[in-house]
Design a protein around this nucleic acid. Sequence first.
DNA 1: GCGATTTGTCAATGGTGCTTTCCATATGGG
DNA 2: CCCATATGGAAAGCACCATTGACAAATCGC
Lengths: 69, 69
Amino acid sequence: MNNRLRVLRAERAWSQQDLAERLEVSRQSVNAIETGRYDPSLPLAFRIADLFGMTIEDIFQNPSKETPQ
Amino acid sequence: MNNRLRVLRAERAWSQQDLAERLEVSRQSVNAIETGRYDPSLPLAFRIADLFGMTIEDIFQNPSKETPQ
DNA sequence: GCGATTTGTCAATGGTGCTTTCCATATGGG
DNA sequence: CCCATATGGAAAGCACCATTGACAAATCGC
């Protein structure tokens, strides 16, 4: 699943460690989500959306809607 | 995590089995999500939101925002 | 060059999403 | 009563989310 986490983090000049602490997850989890190795749980997706003041749909792209061509 | 799945399903007069088939998951998964035994994965949450033509936030309530009093 | 920071990734472990199978209860129609 | 449908849930298993700890490579300031 594509996501804009890396861009949102860069806009705020946060390291992966900074973001991990704000989300209360490990740095490795942040890295794995950014690099697309896995998707966050729904509760974690809500925490991410809350942190950036956005909706989940603003940050994560539904895989069934990726490049529909 | 609270969710409005049971209400949305009832509005359409679908059984849990009907909904499960539309989501391509087992009936037990639908039942477990409705009864709050576990939360769906993020990809499944997107499929649910798509099916009902809503956003994830319309259907699932962020646990950190439940009854903030 | 050296140390500190950042990022990517691996291994091992535990928790959970989702499955199939099975059982139980309730309801409604013949 | 019998049968089908709907719902709730337990058990076992698999795959994946998330953890800690470790290592390597790149960058930056001194």
